[in-house]
């Protein structure tokens, strides 16, 4: 860690509990007392066994999950911004300008081309369409997405192709804080190398990154520090947090097989 650099993101004693009303108000504590500090230009990698709930932390920082206890703070030059009680209308702009999120799955917007999906974060900031277009194509080319796919909607793409669209969309706007949820999971080694390069370039321009990487080799190459979650994450293999969010793409992919089976 760069000792002379003050943190951009800090968490202190974070708790997360889901209350499941359909199960008689059962309380499900998934995180207790997690603290962290992340400096600009640093990549902190969440470590812990699969299913421990590493994505939960990223979703709290991105505002998808509420913070049940503790503090989650962004530190700007002119003051701190507390995220745990941020009004809903502030998140939209915070995500546009500060927090970028590369999720594991692309939430496909029907009919929108891959190129436009990638351009959107820049257009949302009012960037020139021509510039956004060029930057999107540069990134898609770097990530080796075949040019014939750029004008097509990613709905029909393979997992790896969708993920590259998602990565391009996540990196294009150069947010000062990036949340990376397994960006290399379904990529071949050449494209993994491109993602590692993108992460290193982001570090060089001072981006603070919080990431999940299952790939040991990628983790070693990008991580400045590891944040062990054991002891803070109470979720085990039975954690049904995902069952509380069926609209998310994760669970939609989980329901697809059974749906297909019922059709046969």
């Amino acid at each position: 860690m760069t000792a002379n650099s003050s943190p951009f993101l800090s968490a202190s004693s974070l708790d997360k509990t889901f209350v499941l009303h359909a199960q008689g108000g059962q309380q499900l504590a998934v995180m207790r007392g997690l603290s962290l500090s992340l400096a600009p230009g640093e990549c902190l990698v969440l470590a812990g066994r699969s299913g421990i709930g590493k994505s939960t932390l990223l979703k709290m920082v991105n505002g998808n999950y509420r913070v049940s206890g503790g503090r989650l703070t962004l530190h700007f030059d002119d003051g701190a911004l507390e995220l745990s009680d941020l009004p809903a209308q502030a998140w939209h702009r915070l995500r546009r300008d500060v927090i970028g999120y590369v999720s594991q799955f692309l939430r496909v917007v029907p009919r929108v081309s891959a190129r436009e999906v990638v351009m959107e974060p820049l257009l949302a900031r009012g960037c020139d369409t021509h510039d956004a277009h060029q930057r999107a194509e540069t990134l898609l080319a770097r990530l080796n997405l075949p040019e014939r796919l750029w004008a097509l909607a990613p709905g029909t793409f393979s997992g790896g192709e969708q993920q590259r669209v998602n990565i391009a969309r996540g990196f294009i706007a150069e947010h000062p804080l990036l949340l990376l949820d397994e960006p290399t999971a379904s990529l071949d080694s050449a494209n993994r190398d491109v993602v590692v390069e993108l992460i290193q370039e982001a570090k060089a321009r001072g981006t603070a990154m919080l990431g999940i990487f299952h790939d040991e080799e990628v983790r070693t190459r990008v991580a400045d520090r590891l944040l062990p979650l054991e002891g803070h994450m109470l979720g085990g293999t039975e954690m049904p947090a995902s069952s509380a969010m069926p609209v998310s793409s994760e669970s939609s992919s989980a329901t697809t097989p059974s749906h297909k089976e019922s059709l046969q």
């Binding site: 009303h21 999950y65 809903a88």
Partner: peptide, 27 residues
């Protein structure tokens, strides 16, 4: 319940919102 769209859909707090969100069919 009122709030950020992603939060309402991913981490609904009110019993009725939880019911509503968990009743959606996803193809």
């Amino acid at each position: 319940e009122a709030g950020l769209t992603d939060q309402i859909l991913d981490d609904p707090q009110h019993p009725y919102t939880q019911l509503l969100v968990s009743s959606v069919l996803t193809p």
